[in-house]
Nucleic acid binder design. Structure first.
Length: 288
DNA sequence: TACCAGGATGTTG
DNA sequence: CAACATCATGGT
C-alpha cells in the first residue's frame, strides 16, 4: 500500500522527531523503517512505514485493516494540512520563520487517539521527559497488548477499559504518584463510561471541547490544549504553560529569562490561527 | 546538593 | 483572586 505525500513533506525531520527518545515504546525505528502496533477491535496489528520516492510504503500484518491504517498514518503525520498556509501566517515573526525554513516540511506529529494524548500529557505533568518516558513504558508494557515480529515485541497503548478499574495502588509499583495514578484512572473512566467520545468531540467547538476536558480532575489548561492540538487537529490550541515551549522560546529569541505567560500570549499574536503548530516547531528546536 | 522537570489541585491569606 | 503547598522522583 502506498500513500502519496503532500507538497511540503520532510521525512528526515519527522524521523528525527520520532527518534527523540530511546525509551519510546509506542513505535520503533530500525534502519529508517518505522514500526507501530495498534489495537483495533480488540486485536493487535503491526504496520511499517518506509519512504519510497514521493510516497510512504506501508506494510501491514493484516490487510483487512488497510483503510484504518491509512487513516491513522494520515492523522499521525498530519498529511492533510497545507503547510504553505502556516508558513504564510507566521511570516511576521522572523525567528519562527527561520525555524520554518530550517525544518521545512516538518509536520505536526500527532496522536490520532485522543486517549493516548491525554494519558501521555498527564504522565508528563511536572516531571522531566526522560522520567515520563519511563513511566509510559511501564504502563504500556504492563497493561497493553503486544505483537511479535522477527524476534521483536511491539506494544500498543492500553485501552481505557484496561485501566479504568485499576486502583491507585496498582500504579505505585511503577513509580506513579498517587495523584498521577488517580488522574489517569479518571480519564480512563471518562472514555470507558462514554463520557468522552472522540468522534463527538471532533464536531464540537474549541470552547465546548476544552470545557469537557478540563472538567476531568487532572486535566488542566495545558493538558487540554496539548491534547486538542495533538489529537483533534486544533492547530491554534496553545499549551502556553508548557516548560518546553518556554525554554525553546528563550533560546530562539536569545532571551535572558524564560518568557512569562503574558509575554507568550503577546508574542503568539504573530502566529494567528497556528499557535499549536508554532509550538510544535519550537519544541522541535529543542532537538537541535 | 539543590533545583528543575512538556502541571493540576487544594488551601491559605 | 493571588500566592503557596503538595505531589514524588528522576535528571543534572
Amino acid at each position: 500500500m502506498l500513500i502519496t505525500l503532500p507538497k511540503h513533506y520532510n521525512h528526515a525531520e519527522i524521523l528525527r522527531f520520532l527518534s527523540r527518545n530511546e525509551k519510546e515504546c509506542l513505535h520503533s525505528i530500525k534502519q529508517e523503517t518505522i514500526y507501530k502496533a495498534l489495537e483495533i477491535d480488540g486485536e493487535i496489528i503491526l504496520f511499517s512505514i518506509d519512504l519510497e520516492g514521493n510516497s510512504l510504503k506501508i506494510n501491514l500484518s493484516d490487510e483487512k485493516h488497510a483503510e484504518n491504517v491509512k487513516k491513522y498514518i494520515s492523522a499521525w503525520f498530519d498529511l492533510e494540512t497545507d503547510l504553505g498556509i502556516f508558513y504564510e501566517a507566521i511570516k511576521e515573526d522572523e525567528v519562527l520563520q527561520k525555524l520554518c525554513q530550517k525544518y521545512k516540511g516538518l509536520r505536526m506529529i500527532g496522536m490520532p487517539d485522543l486517549y493516548e494524548s491525554l494519558v501521555w500529557s498527564i504522565i508528563g505533568q511536572q516531571i522531566n521527559l526522560s522520567f515520563a518516558y519511563s513511566l509510559k513504558e511501564r504502563l504500556v508494557k504492563n497493561f497493553g497488548k503486544s505483537i511479535h515480529h522477527n524476534g521483536e515485541t511491539f506494544y500498543a497503548l492500553p485501552k481505557p477499559s484496561d485501566l479504568a478499574n485499576l486502583s491507585i495502588e496498582d500504579f505505585l509499583p511503577f513509580q506513579f504518584s498517587r495523584q498521577k495514578a488517580q488522574y489517569i484512572i479518571n480519564v480512563s473512566k471518562a472514555f470507558a463510561d462514554g463520557e468522552l467520545v472522540q468522534k463527538d468531540l471532533e464536531k464540537m467547538s474549541f470552547e465546548e471541547v476544552h470545557a469537557k476536558l478540563v472538567k476531568i480532575k487532572g486535566v488542566g489548561n495545558w493538558t487540554a490544549n496539548y491534547s486538542m492540538m495533538k489529537s483533534l487537529k486544533n492547530y491554534d490550541a496553545f499549551p502556553v504553560e508548557d516548560v518546553g515551549l518556554h525554554n525553546a522560546v528563550k533560546n530562539q529569541y536569545g532571551m535572558e529569562q524564560k518568557p512569562s505567560i503574558a509575554l507568550l500570549h503577546e508574542m503568539s499574536k504573530k502566529w494567528p490561527n497556528w499557535r499549536g503548530y508554532a509550538t510544535f516547531y519550537f519544541w522541535h528546536s529543542l532537538l537541535d
